[in-house]
């Protein structure tokens, strides 16, 4: 298990980028990750952000049902299992967000007529669940050795009543917030792959949040690198 803490807040003051320091509390909670912890799936990872924790398992490339077969690429299926009970509409929407992000980064055309299944088990939800699921998904896909054009990470930003941007909010902070935005950021160009928003916010706030997320994503990508390096340290 590797973990990473960041205490200093992110400040964006360079060039013509938006000035977001001062009014934002853009520090991420402590996060940690463990790869290939399950024996049955082809790739697995658990990702912990503060008290939020998600376990991901990837199966594939495996045999596909004829009804779901796509002739020129792999079929990706994402299943989100809540902590208790059966998946609801909320989980369905999360599934779609994660699936679309994964489809954007995976090279699915390299495994035509096969199926990839990604199962995300929510272990505990203390805010920023979608971004934690995205991070867990990315680590699990990497662990499975599936061909990817780039990595991705998820960052959640909450805008509270005073207009302050909080990255990686807890459940309590999410509840108090005026708007909640989650972005998936890719590792090569820091572009937004997916966004999921709730509440009302201005265009300026949206751009601020994207800038904060892109800055925060650097830390997560650096953590990915350290974590994978530690994993391969024995075979170097």
């Amino acid at each position: 298990m590797t973990s990473f803490t960041c205490d200093e807040s992110v400040s964006l003051c360079e060039g013509n980028m938006m000035e977001v320091c001062g009014s934002t509390d853009s520090c991420l909670r402590e996060f940690g990750c463990e790869q290939s912890l399950l024996s049955r799936p082809d790739g697995s990872a658990s990702f912990v952000q503060g008290d939020t924790s998600v376990l991901a398992g990837v199966y594939g490339p495996a045999e596909v049902k004829v009804s779901k077969e796509i002739y020129d690429r792999a079929t990706l299926e994402v299943l989100v299992q809540p902590k208790v009970g059966l998946p609801t509409v909320k989980e369905r929407s999360q599934e779609q967000c994660v699936r679309e992000t994964c489809e954007a980064s995976l090279l699915l055309t390299l495994h035509p007529r096969s199926s990839l299944t990604l199962v995300l088990q929510v272990l505990h939800d203390d805010g920023s669940l979608l971004s934690c699921s995205l991070n867990a998904a990315c680590m699990a896909l990497m662990d499975a050795g599936l061909p990817m054009s780039c990595l991705f990470c998820g960052v959640t930003c909450a805008i509270d009543a005073d207009g302050r941007i909080i990255t990686d909010p807890t459940a309590a902070q999410e509840k108090e917030s005026r708007a909640l935005l989650t972005f998936a950021v890719d590792s090569t160009e820091r572009k937004v792959l997916m966004s999921s928003t709730r509440g009302s916010f201005s265009v300026h706030e949206l751009q601020q949040c994207i800038a904060v997320s892109q800055k925060a994503s650097e830390k997560i990508f650096q953590f990915y690198r350290d974590s994978v390096r530690r994993r391969y340290s024995k075979t170097l």
Binding site: D42, G145, T235
Partner: peptide, 19 residues
């Protein structure tokens, strides 16, 4: 994974995978 090299000019990624 880890980048590997074989003389004279072959390069590949050495990855731990199960499938």
């Amino acid at each position: 994974g880890v980048l590997r090299h074989k003389q004279p000019n072959v390069f590949w990624m050495d990855a731990q995978q199960k499938r």
